[in-house]
Design a binder for these strands. Structure first.
Lengths: 152, 152
DNA sequence: TTTTTGCATGGGAATCGTTCTAGTTTACAC
DNA sequence: GTGTAAACTAGAACGATTCCCATGCAAAAA
């Protein structure tokens, strides 16, 4: 299905900025990007899109369920395309690498906890912060956020 | 043990702002507060402490392990006193109420996931967002953040 | 097709939470 | 008590995000 159809389904007009932004986020190498990352990617493509529009569109995408917003440590939001399957994150604070995982047992226990509290869960997030294998083994994490991960 | 001793142990001078802020966070009703909440509490007590000092002190307390910083949805940081026992959080997005829980099974699974990735975990956070029992049962959540929770 | 209507956009200003800077004050070892 | 490094205050600065508004554009109505 085309991006254009995805947008219409979400009740959003298929405008150029929205199509471009969706396209960027769908690239496999995109993974986790800040609004700024997306903005820079647009500029690199030669598109004249305002930063305000990027923020507006990302928020709309989030409401429409097309992307997931994460509030990793550090204050700024990072976005990733929503491929449907929920997963949690492991973030290397040294190199910014982000790993994803899904553990049915954890999901189930969370569901039980919420149930016991009589709580209706809209969303949940689980992040682990630390240092990745590369760091331990070779000390080669750059200590600077990897471009495109939105983590520094 | 006095707050003053706690601070010295953490390698921090026992200054008036630090003692007052620690005192505020230790009150049972404090639970989860933003820097702004703490600042307002100080003003209410008639203390002349700058907002910048509140931020600086909270960050120092975090480094010293005296408080835990959380990045709940919404961008701003909330702080809670560290009583030693790790726990996770359930946040009602309607009334701002925060519930705490600890699930050994979840902790164990997380440990395993990190191990499998060869990842060294410094910290982890698990938040569930939704609506609490009060909301469902009586619709009495105020739709506005409860003062002192730092959540809105 | 032309007109109307209303959402979308871009750019800059505004806002929010947070951190930095400069100059002054304070805690605490001696 | 005194000296010195650390901590303080107020306000400016900062980065991320949102707001504002004049302009643009595309679907609906005429």
């Amino acid at each position: 299905m085309s991006d254009s159809t995805d947008l219409k389904k979400a009740g959003l007009k298929a405008t150029l900025p929205r199509l471009k932004i969706l396209g960027i986020l769908e690239e496999p190498r995109a993974r986790h990007m800040t609004a700024e990352d997306v903005y820079k990617a647009l500029l690199d493509m030669g598109e004249e899109v305002g930063l305000a529009t990027v923020y507006r569109v990302l928020t709309q995408f989030e409401s429409a369920g097309l992307v997931i917003r994460h509030n990793f440590e550090g204050g700024r939001s990072v976005f990733e395309i929503n491929h449907g399957g929920h997963h949690d994150h492991v973030v290397c604070v040294e190199c910014g690498e982000v790993f994803e995982f899904y553990d049915p047992a954890i999901e189930e226990r969370q569901r039980r906890v919420a149930e016991a509290l009589g709580f209706h869960v809209d969303s949940h997030s689980l992040y682990m912060y630390g240092t990745c294998l590369g760091m331990k083994r070779e000390g080669r994490c750059s200590k600077k956020g990897i471009p495109g991960t939105g983590v520094s």
